[in-house]
Structures are given as C-alpha cells and as structure tokens.
Nucleic acid binder design. Structure first.
Lengths: 183, 183
DNA sequence: CAAGGCATGTAAATCGTTACATGATTTA
DNA sequence: TAAATCATGTAACGATTTACATGCCTTG
C-alpha cells in the first residue's frame, strides 16, 4: 500500500519511468523507504488500472519501450488524502544487531566486541557521508529546483538521520567499553 | 529465517509453548523484533521437522493440547552459528513519519505541525515507560534469574532505546519550532 | 572489448498481517 | 455475566526479495 503513495509523491513532482523512480528512491528516500524494480513495475501497472497514473509510451530501438507515468487528478487526490492522515503509533522496528546482542550471553566476549566494533565503523562511515556529500546534494537540489518550502522538510530529515546516527555511535562506544569489562 | 533464531534463543533459556513464546516476544524483544502467533506456530512445526526442537505434548481438557518445545543439540548448534555471524551492513529502515514529512511540501503547515506534535506525545509517553516500568522489570528479571552476564546486554539494549527516543524527542521539538516559522 | 548503465518485465519463494475458527477457564 | 486469557491452528491476502530473462548503448 505505502509504496503506491511513495511513487505518487515523486510523480507529483515530475512524470517518470519505473527505472527513474527506482533511482529517485535510491538517491533520496533510502534513509526511510526503499523498494526493488520488481516491486515498482507491477505497482505502476496497478495504479494505471486504477486511474491514478497515466502511461505515455516512448518507443525505443533495441530496448523495451520506455513508459513515462504521470499522476492524474484522481491520483493526486489519493496522494493528498494519504498524506493528511497522521501516523498515530510508534512503528515497530526490526533490528538484527540489537537482536543478536540480546542473546549474546551465549557468545564469547571477544566476538561480541568484534560485532560491536564493526557496527561502529559502519555508522561512522555513514555519518561522514550524511554530513558531507548527502548534505551538499540536498542543498544543491533545493537551489536547483527552488523548492524552498520542501527544502525545509528535506533538511529536517537529514538532521534526523544525522542525530540518530550520532546517538548510535555514542551508544556503541559506551557499549564497547562496558562489554570489554566483562572479560 | 530470523524469527527461527529468535525462537531458538528463547528456547535456549527454557522450553516453552508457542503461546508463551509470543508473550516473551511481546514483553522483551518488542523494541527490535516482533511476530504474530500465526507466524510462530508454523515455524515451530518446521523446526520440529528439521530436528531443531522437540515437542512434548501435554493433553488439556477442553482446549487444544499444549505443546511445549525444547531445543535440541542440533538446534543449539544452529543458533550459536547464527549468533556468531556479524551483521555487516546498516539495515535499511522504513519510517512512515519521515516519509510523510518528506512529501509535506504539498501539505498545509497546520497539518504538518499536528502530525509532528502527535509523534512528540507518543515518544514522550514511550520514554516514560522505558525509564520507569520497563527499566524496573529488566532489573527484577536479572535479580530473579541471576543472569548477570545477560543482564549487561539487556540493559545496554534498554539504554539504546532510551537514547534513540530522547534524540527523536529533541529532534521533534526542534522540527516543530522550525516548521512553525513557515506559516 | 569488458563492464556498467539503460529499460522492461516474470516467476518463485519468503515473509508478514489480518481474519477466521473453536471453546473452556479465569477474572472483574 | 461479560471480557479477557489460555491454547491451538488455517486461509487469504499482501508485501518483499531473489533469481531469471533480454539486449542495446555508452564508457573506460
């Protein structure tokens, strides 16, 4: 269900092909939503059948025809209606790192430490990327599109990712200290 | 796949029924893993067929027989092997609150603020629960079971939940300030 | 000339939720 | 006496991932 609205949200900016939508997902919402092409193509067809989007076929030589989808008025209405419904729960998460840590009583201290240190490295690299390239790209996009109101939300989301990542890093550093005392 | 190991992890402490495992999930791992009974029962049968667990049937009057599952040596081996494999990625998340915020350029400021304020309330209530009752229950469980090594991990996980929730609250407060300036 | 990008899709399998079904016992 | 708990499960649906399939064009 939700993926439909993600795609509508992008199509609300600009008509796109499935392939382009996949890249938009990878380049902008990967922090909080992702999908594979094999999921995107059937959903676009379903939304076309439901009258939420329209396809304009551009024949290509040697490749499958390019289908560029535009949002319809019905689709725009469905999108806005979805957007206006508040999320009134804290969404349950799945986190395999915490899960393994939870059961790590059965694991030797050295292995637990190795696992935590690996996560620490990954998070540090991720933070670098968020603070550097990602931050720049968002700023450039706001300049290029002139979407200043949208830009406020995009930057807030980046802030969220940055703060949560920093918190995870600090926690991992402390956890490593604490676990190291076990041996 | 993963749910198998979650169940094995609990069965590694004590033989349990599907119904009891569901309650263990709800009361301890809901922060990072959850499942419905309709998923748990078939998986227990599958693990029995694979020789990872054994069922001891206790007939009951008027109810379905109670099946208490114990972990086997094979199951214990599979569990330890899973546990020792490091998680070498940052797992992608789905977050509908961020998703809607991302597209909130199409939404009026008052509605965005209402959505953010609702999330702030939810997070604050959640933090109260983590700091109060949940913290106590974990401490009591460590005392009752004498699992002091495990207890370190359980408390670290609680710390993580607390810190991430605090970060979310601070971010929401700032986001509300920032969005309020838009109108 | 090899690798990666462009461009579409199908098939199979897995994972997860919601609804349905039963019916006694315990608690408020 | 109504609601919640105990105790198992099936069926249907929906969501998601992985593997398979084609084949040209562009870049290094």
């Amino acid at each position: 269900m939700t993926l439909q609205y993600v795609l509508l949200g992008f199509l609300n900016y600009v008509p796109s092909t499935g392939y382009e939508l996949k890249k938009l997902l990878d380049n902008s919402t990967q922090l909080f939503w992702h999908a594979e092409l094999s999921q995107i193509y059937p959903i676009l067809r379903k939304m076309e059948a439901d009258g939420w989007v329209e396809a304009h076929v551009e024949p290509l030589k040697g490749r499958p025809d390019r289908k560029r989808y535009s949002i319809t008025d019905t689709g725009r209405q469905a999108f806005r209606s979805w957007l206006s419904i508040p999320v009134d729960t804290i969404e349950p998460e799945k986190n395999e790192v915490l899960l393994k840590l939870f059961f790590s009583g059965s694991l030797d201290t050295a292995t637990v430490l190795a696992h935590l240190r690996l996560q620490l490295e990954l998070r540090r690299a991720y933070l670098q990327r968020l603070q550097g390239p990602t931050r720049m790209e968002v700023a450039a996009l706001i300049q290029a599109t002139g979407q200043h109101r949208e830009g406020v939300f995009w930057e807030l989301i980046l802030d969220y990712g940055e703060e949560q990542t920093k918190t995870a890093i600090t926690w991992l550093e402390g956890a490593i200290q604490r676990v190291a005392q076990l041996s």
